[in-house]
Amino acid sequence: MTLERLAYASPWRRIAPSAKALFCACAMAAAWLTATPLGACALALLLAAITVAVARTPWRDYLRVLRAPLGFLALSCLTMLVTITPGDHGPAGWRLAPELLPPVMMTVTRAAALCTALLLLVLTTPLGDLLGLLRRLRVPALLLDLMALAYRMQAVLGEAWSDGTTAQRARLGYVGRRQALRSMAALISCMAVQVWARASALQAAADARNDTGELRFLTPQFDRSPRHHLMAALAGVMLVATVLAGGPA
């Protein structure tokens, strides 16, 4: 998981998640408020530049992370740019509709701006730290417990999955498509059966440490310099104000 690795390595990890989340929320608001494709595009580029140049995410990794959303964008835009030529009796045929370009451009650039805002947050803040933030934002306890457990266990299960497929490959489990499907099904069912055993082992471990029914952890302490929050708020408000004033265009 590239995102995870980059977030833990990010020099911005030490900044309080609340400050980063505040800035990204402002950036997202600005993206919604932008009226022109040019403005949204400028915003996206600015956010990407901050992520790469200021938060020092390696640009190659950044591009790799962008691949999935860009694929979705390309496919969807193509779909939106195609329409039918109405004939006398129903549709006469498909055609490219260049007149649709402006609204599609707006959608694309806005999506890019929102997407780069989200990436700025998740590339500098590991999910573990975001969970701490959600705890402070008073998300329902059950949902938080679920997320905390799922985050820890997805790493454990992911490791078990990769060990399992490696062992299967060593015994030629993926030499063909049929074998692959069979191997995968065997591993999934085996791990699904283990879900109960793992859950009860975790429960025993929690009980051994005096479990009270709610998974309580210390919220991480960040160097909560008000400076970071102030800077984040200022920068965020400036973004929104710029957009409201008509954008850099």
């Binding site: 417990d145 679920l146 457990l149 820890r152 299960l157 992911g158 859950a199 929690a206 029914g213």
Partner: peptide
């Protein structure tokens, strides 16, 4: 609680 958490992790993995 644990069962739901492990299941969520498993669903995410899948």
């Amino acid at each position: 609680r644990m069962l739901l958490g492990v299941s969520a992790a498993f669903a995410f993995l899948l």
